[in-house]
């Protein structure tokens, strides 16, 4: 399908070889930036940001919980988007991106759930509360697990890529519906419960480190994605001549 309005690099990305090279160049930069940001954000959030007047120091879990939750959601979107691109333009790299994102996103959902649960203990007094956000995050994890299970159940790589793309798109349509319905269900059963992260405007001393952490997490897990993607490219392109050349030179 010839599409004129898309930039050239978009189609260059379709070439596994080009993608392998460009990620190889990007990885060191991402490593430096992401580790700097995450270390900075962690120290800032843990030691320098002021304690919350209600929750005290347990509030500092926010600097881990919120970035993990945001990334788990945006990685699902990325997975569905990459799957759609793979379906429409038959782009192999997009398929590989979608496959590589899934386990990372699932691990982030697990992190968001665990930190949410641990945070709940000092705040609500129990390890698990059927709070709207935690429940939708749990459902998001289920969606991730479904995608991963389907992908590993189908042997042919192209079929698996296409099938998971359809599933993740269906999931993407459903996420807002699930979110809305869970929130609605929650207000029905737990009126006026104490929300973990809904605060009346955080002061800058609190949200600036949070922003640093969010950006740091994006770059850090972008890095993790590139590492996985490169393995995937090598494995699927093992018969291509450039991979053979690369391997024989490296030896």
């Amino acid at each position: 399908m010839a599409v004129k309005w898309l930039p050239r690099w978009f189609f260059q990305l379709a070439s596994p070889r080009w993608c392998y090279q460009i990620t190889g160049m990007l990885i060191p930069w991402f490593a430096v930036v992401s580790i700097t940001l995450v270390v900075l954000g962690t120290i800032w959030g843990l030691a320098f940001a002021p304690a919350d007047y209600q929750q005290g120091n347990s509030f500092r879990i926010i600097y881990l919980h919120v970035p993990a939750a945001i990334l788990a959601q945006s990685f699902y979107m990325l997975m569905a988007l990459a799957g759609a691109i793979g379906l429409i333009w038959k782009m192999k790299v997009a398929d590989m991106v979608a496959k590589s994102v899934a386990p990372i996103g699932a691990s982030l959902a697990v992190l968001a759930l665990l930190t949410g649960a641990i945070w709940g203990k000092p705040t609500w007094g129990s390890w698990w509360v059927w709070d709207a956000r935690l429940t939708s995050m749990l459902v998001l994890l289920f969606l991730y697990l479904g995608v991963i299970a389907l992908n590993s159940a189908i042997e042919s790589e192209t079929t698996a890529g296409q099938a998971t793309a359809v599933l993740s798109l269906v999931g993407l349509v459903n996420i807002p519906i699930i979110k809305y319905s869970v929130e609605w269900w929650n207000t029905l059963h737990q009126p006026a419960s104490f929300k973990l992260t809904e605060k009346p405007a955080m002061p800058p001393e609190m949200w600036v480190p949070l922003l640093v952490m969010v950006i740091g997490f994006y770059t850090l897990f972008g890095l993790a994605l590139m590492l996985r993607l490169r393995n995937e490219i090598l494995q699927r392109e093992r018969r291509a001549s450039w991979v053979r050349d690369l391997l024989s030179v490296k030896a």
């Binding site: 962690t42 843990l46 879990i61 665990l114 930190t115 945070w119 993790a224």
Partner: peptide, 17 residues
């Protein structure tokens, strides 16, 4: 609670890399 969370965070980050 705080250190448990950050420990888990470190674990997941390191595992992902």
């Amino acid at each position: 609670y705080v250190w448990l969370c950050y420990g888990l965070g470190l674990l997941i980050v390191v595992a992902n890399l």
